[in-house]
Amino acid sequence: MRDLLAAISDQPLDPAAVDAAVAGPEHGAVVVFTGVVRNHDGGQSVSALEYQAHPDAEKFLRRCCEQVSTESGLLVAAVHRVGPLTVGDLALVAAVAAPHRAEAFAACALLVERIKAEVPIWKRQHFDGGVTEWVGL
């Protein structure tokens, strides 16, 4: 089995690299989720945001990937961005490879939900007009 890709990065994310971490000739489906910084939230215009991570966030991310991989029997990978991001930047790339699309879609959705629920990463949104707000605290 390949090494598990589970990383926190302060550099722009590369979906092709995450895809390559799981893709192989034995798989008929690779589902890649990209979480993108959008320009609005709660009826307000968002100009930018920043992510901050707990020092152990990568350990939690690895655990999420390992759990989904063990439960599904599939290859999974995920990279989450930290630091300042602008509208359109990628904040999360998660990938799952499977023999068939339905199981890849299901496992990828599970992986993303687990990451959002279990990995200690905090988002601070910057709204037009200079207002900032931590989300989900």
Rank of each mutant, 00 (worst) to 15 (best):
A29Y: 03
S47D: 14
D14K: 06
F33N: 01
A53F: 10
R81D: 15
D14H: 09
G88I: 05
V76L: 06
G83D: 14
S47E: 14
S45E: 14
G42V: 01
V18A: 02
Y51W: 07
E103P: 10
D41K: 12
E71D: 15
G130N: 12
E118A: 10
F105K: 08
L74W: 04
G136R: 04
L90M: 05
E103I: 08
A23I: 00
D14R: 03
F33P: 03
A29V: 01
C64W: 09
P15N: 11
A78C: 14
A98I: 04
A7G: 10
C65Q: 02
L49Q: 11
D3V: 13
V30Y: 03
A53V: 04
S45Y: 10
E50F: 07
T34I: 07
G136N: 12
V46E: 09
V87L: 10
F105R: 08
V36G: 14
Q125I: 00
E71C: 09
V93R: 00
I121T: 03
Q11E: 13
A16G: 13
A78D: 09
V46W: 05
A95V: 03
S9L: 04
H80G: 03
G28P: 05
R124L: 12
A78N: 01
V18T: 08
F60D: 11
A17R: 07
C65P: 05
A57T: 07
F60I: 06
A48G: 13
D10K: 03
N39A: 15
A20S: 13
D19Y: 00
V135N: 07
A94R: 01
F33M: 10
